[in-house]
Design a protein around this nucleic acid. Sequence first.
DNA 1: ATGAAAGCGCTAACAC
DNA 2: GTGTTAGCGCTTTCAT
Lengths: 342, 342
Amino acid sequence: MVSGQRGTVGIGEVARAAGVSNGTVSNVLNHPSRVNADTATRVHEAIQRLGYVRNGIASQLRAGTRTTVGSIVLDIRNPFFTDVTRGIEDHLATADFTLMTASSDGDVVREQRFLRLFEEQGVGGVVVVPAGEDVQRLVELAGRGTPVVVLDVSLPGSSLSSVSVDDVEGGRLALEHLLAQGYERIDVVTGAAEVRQTRDRLRGARLACESHGLDPDRVLSVRTARTLDSAGAEEAIGRLVDESGTCPHAVFAMNDLMAIGVQRALRRRELYEPGRTAVVGYDDIDLAAELLVPLTSIRQPTHALGARAAEILLAPASQEAEQVVFQPELVVRESSLGTARR
Amino acid sequence: MVSGQRGTVGIGEVARAAGVSNGTVSNVLNHPSRVNADTATRVHEAIQRLGYVRNGIASQLRAGTRTTVGSIVLDIRNPFFTDVTRGIEDHLATADFTLMTASSDGDVVREQRFLRLFEEQGVGGVVVVPAGEDVQRLVELAGRGTPVVVLDVSLPGSSLSSVSVDDVEGGRLALEHLLAQGYERIDVVTGAAEVRQTRDRLRGARLACESHGLDPDRVLSVRTARTLDSAGAEEAIGRLVDESGTCPHAVFAMNDLMAIGVQRALRRRELYEPGRTAVVGYDDIDLAAELLVPLTSIRQPTHALGARAAEILLAPASQEAEQVVFQPELVVRESSLGTARR
DNA sequence: ATGAAAGCGCTAACAC
DNA sequence: GTGTTAGCGCTTTCAT
């Protein structure tokens, strides 16, 4: 009974069962308006009865339609990318498109391999968080006819569309918040790696100082941690405290994990009480609100980021490249407030 | 110049450029051994020169090969599912398969829609965390020829393969740990919803008591929170403390978020110091180790779960259904230790 | 080792 | 409104 790869039932059997031709069955599926209502009913009954499932592969080959989109992020486990992915998924679902995902781990070779797989699969487009600086391969891909949206990187003037968040503004918001509370000596915890995001956030922090008429170099002390996680930040701030013998008044950490590391460094030294040291993080991870001392943070519209990227891909014809920049948002919680505990 | 849907270059052009026939080009790609080395080189050069990208859709239609797998989880944003997804991705990558993902939000209708889309796309299999109790649709899908692996649910005796983690054992491990430290009054914080996972964990907790010759009903006090998150747990434990005027000695929370809620409830009442109340969570989320008081938790082999599911799908012929049950693991951190702070 | 040709399952033209 | 038929781009017999 098994002839094809799957459940066997093809459009021909449906046609025979309904007493119509293949073309009519196809029309019922794809252009219902062209078909007489009674005929359509008969066809649908036959489809039901036989358990017919359309072969999307054949349909795609013939009609040249695309129903999938690919996405490549650095690591799907990173909540930022997970949220973005969900945003893509959700938008695609509105069009019955389906999402293929892959994690590049920042490895250009892996990225290239997945791009190739996606291209061969005939995806209707890809959204990519580039693994490297060089987007040449992506430009070429787009040139061969696969729409590309670059994520989390802004590419003004590029032929590729991009969707990103304004990191300079994020840094500015964080500092603005601290400055507004009167802090004038602020420690900034960052990582050693030259990541564009942290560079931008730092730049925003400096801008905020300047717009308050303050000299950034006097206000900000940049502490470089070995790693961009809580352990790195804990060590960096711990060292600072141990060496200087003083406790920072205010800290801006480049991400929430580092902010948690800061909290921990101070607590371990019995220096941490709400109201004593203001801490601001970045990313607004889900747990920021759940901590013993809920964390003030910068929230990025991650879901919207993904949704917008998907929207651009599904836009009728790929018109000109579009550069979308979202704005981040300050979320104030207990960790940055100078008031006594609740 | 554009004739097909994409970059135009087809196998025919490559063949002409290399001075061979279509079939030979195909053989170079799919059965290199059948082809003379020189010819192969010529063909590869032509492929390179023309920038030929194989049309996987056509290839799949003709050869009946599958190169994608679908997965449906409740919500990709849940770290448990994200890790599982990465496990699937990683295993698939070893075979140049590609993963399509979808989130059902526990909605059977959404689930069904994605299953349909995947089936039409001709996926080589699906791994599904079922949205409802009923797996009938999945059995039917498998019956039509699409291999199915059910995740996070064990289905002994079913015709479907499944991969899951032993939740009874997880509950047992947690209680065993607390009992071993001499706690004999333990509060268990759970949710109101009748979730299989929590039922099993609770059962494991009772088993641990019994194996210590203790009456579970005397050892365990089950506190039902309104929600399975930190706010729910905070309220439940807060109420307990406020009403009884005493502080629990040991708490087992059904997930890490709830455990954090417990920590917060006690801290808000200035009752929480390490060594005073032992807290054990479940899931071992990334942040468990990062908290002010690092959390003891039960870790599930999430990545392996996904990888194994993918492995089953890619196994040569879909032999008999296979039921894989992984064991969880206790991760001890500061929150459950009776000793004074480090 | 290579070429010629049929056909995977479907859709879109075109006839009627 | 419905039937007929060519063909999407590839892989695979079957010859040679």
